[in-house]
């Protein structure tokens, strides 16, 4: 069946199976920055923005997204660049598998609550797991990124 998605500000028609998840549709259509870490919303790696809100695309049926706006990290390159530089400066990069999803969630936090406190940052990002960094350097980088705006 056909669905219409606005991906990164471009209207596109996708031929999808009724039982296909958004993650699989995006990956097979070359949005490879959206990645699979688990299969049931447990890790956050597959996050995309659906109408500017972070959602796990591994568990969202593609048909449910019909008519909605999807943003992947390809759609927020400038913001990802800014956050990426802070990650670099704080030593927050390790395997990076979760980093594009992190960029999307952090960007969404910035839209919602640019003056987020430490606790609010942690609460907002709790679903974005990281097995490499121990979170501390990431947290410092995210704070600096949010601080850039104020």
């Amino acid at each position: 069946m056909k669905i219409k998605l606005n991906v990164n500000q471009k209207e596109k028609v996708f031929e999808v199976e009724p039982n296909e998840y958004l993650l699989d549709v995006l990956r097979r259509t070359h949005y490879t920055s959206v990645r699979r870490g688990c299969d049931n919303t447990g890790c956050g790696v597959c996050t995309v923005l659906l109408d500017n809100k972070p959602v796990p695309s591994c568990s969202l049926l593609a048909v449910k997204a019909d008519g909605h706006e999807i943003i992947t990290v390809e759609g927020i390159q400038e913001e990802a660049d800014k956050l990426g530089r802070h990650f670099g400066d704080e030593g927050a990069d390790q395997c990076g598998f979760c980093n594009p999803s992190m960029a999307l969630t952090v960007y969404s936090l910035k839209l919602e609550n640019p003056k987020a406190t430490d606790e609010e940052i942690n609460q907002y990002l709790v679903g974005n797991l990281c097995r490499c960094t121990g979170y501390v350097a990431q947290h410092d980088a995210i704070k600096k990124y949010l601080g850039d705006q104020s």
Partner: peptide, 25 residues
């Protein structure tokens, strides 16, 4: 010296990097 990782920025920006990103269609 505290030098940023050489590959972090491209990875953050979602460039093809990981094994499945290179799988044949």
């Amino acid at each position: 010296h505290k030098i940023p990782s050489v590959d972090g920025l491209g990875i953050m920006k979602g460039r093809k990097a990981y094994t499945d990103d290179f799988a044949e269609n």
